[in-house]
Amino acid sequence: MLQIKTPEIYISEPGAIKLLGSLVKPYGKRTLIIWSKTARKVTEDDVIESLGVERIHYMEYQFEGYPTLQKAEEIAALARENDIEILIAVGGGRVIDTVKAAGDLSSLPVASVPTIAATCAAWAALSVLYTDEGNFNHFRHNKQSPKLIVADTNILAKAPVRYLRAGVVDTIAKWYETAVHQGNSFSYLNSVNSAKLAFDFLVKDAAKVIDASIDKSIDEKTVKTVDAILFLAGNVGSYVGDKAFSGFAHPFYHSSRIIKETRNTLHGELVAFGLIMQAILEKKPQDQIEGIVRKFQELKVAFTLEEIGISEQAEAKLQIISDRIHEVFPDLLLLEGNSDEKAIVNAAFEADAYVKSVRREGEEIYG
C-alpha cells in the first residue's frame, strides 16, 4: 500500500511570513501559536500583524526543552479546551515535531513556520519524539503532514550559519541513504530521484550559498537551497510504501542521543559523522571515503569523535550506541554485511581517523 503525505501549500520566498494570516484564514479564525523564545523574537511582529489583518484570534504557548509526547498531549488538550481550529508551529525541528504530534492527537491542521533550515521537519509527517532529558524515544507516524509551510528565506538565511550547514548535510544524506537500497517500486524511485536532485544541486552550490549567508546575502540559490532542505528532502519521505528506505546515518543520529554529551551537537552534524561511518560499513574504496570527507570539510561539517561529544571512554560509549542501533533498527541493510559486534565501533574510530587525516592534508597544502 502506498500512502502519500504532503502539505497542501508550500511557500518559500523572502517575506513569506507576511502571508501567514491569509494562508491560515481558510482553516479557521482561532489559532494557537507554539513558538520558542528565540523564534518568537525574530517573527513576532510579522506573525501578529498578519493574523491581525485577517482578524484571527490567537493564543500562545512558549515551547522549551525537547519534543516529547507529554508536551504534544498538553498542546492538544489546550487546543481542545479553547476551540482552536489550527495550530501554528514557529521555530526549529523540536517545536515543529511536537506540534505535528499535537495536531495528530487533536485532529487539527498544522501550519509550520520554520525559523532555521536545519532539517526537513517542517514538511515531514513524521515526528521524532524524545524523553525530557533528550534521549531518543520513538517515531510518531502522524496521519498527515502540516497543511501549510511558510518558509521565509529572509529569516532562514539570517539564522546562525551552523543550522544551514547542518540542513545541507542532512539533505545530502537522503541521497547516500536511499542509494544504499535497490528497488523498483514507485515509492523508492520517487524517493531516490528526489534525493539525487537535491544532492546534485547542493554539492555544486551549497558552499557558495553558505558563504553568502554569512554576509546575510539572499539570492535565487539561497531559495533553492531552502527548497532542497525542506521540499525535496521532505518529499523523499512523503511517499510511504510497505518498506522504509534508510541507510546508516540517521539511525546513528537517533541512537547517539542515548549519550548525553552528544546532545549539544545538531542533528545534521551527527548525521554527517554517520555518513562517513556508512561509507566505511559499505566498504567503499579509500579514495571515495576521502572524497566524502573532503566535501564535508569544505562545508565545515566534517567532525571528529571529540567534536560530536564522544571523547572520554569513547569505546564504551560507542558500544552503547552500537547496541542501541541493533536494538532499535535491527533490519538495517548494512548490519547484514557487518555482523562483527565491533563493526560499528570500529567504523566510528575509522571515521574519526579519516577526518583527522584530511585535515592534516589540508594543513600541509595551505600551511
Rank of each mutant, 00 (worst) to 15 (best):
N82G: 01
E74H: 03
Q144N: 07
H138R: 02
R165P: 01
D132F: 07
T115W: 06
N137F: 05
N137T: 01
L148I: 14
L129Y: 11
R140N: 05
I84Q: 13
V95I: 08
D152E: 06
A72C: 05
L108V: 15
I116Q: 06
K100A: 01
E74K: 14
V90E: 02
L105G: 06
V113N: 11
V95P: 00
T119P: 03
V128W: 07
L78Y: 11
H138S: 10
T98M: 11
D83I: 06
S127L: 07
A157M: 12
A79S: 04
I155F: 03
D97S: 13
G92M: 07
V161P: 00
G91I: 13
A125L: 01
Q144A: 13
Y163R: 06
A89F: 10
F136T: 00
P146R: 11
V110Y: 13
P160K: 14
I96V: 11
G134P: 06
I88Y: 12
L87S: 12
V161T: 07
T119F: 02
R94Y: 04
K147F: 09
V161C: 09
P146A: 01
L108P: 06
V150M: 10
A102C: 02
I86A: 01
T115A: 07
L148R: 08
I86M: 15
A125S: 10
V113P: 07
L78W: 02
T153E: 02
L87G: 04
A124W: 00
N135D: 09
A89S: 09
D132C: 07
D132A: 08
I88G: 01
A89L: 09
G91Q: 00
P146V: 05
V113C: 09
L129M: 10
I96D: 00
A122S: 15
K71Y: 02
R94H: 08
R165Y: 15
G134W: 05
D97K: 09
V128L: 06
A118L: 14
I86G: 10
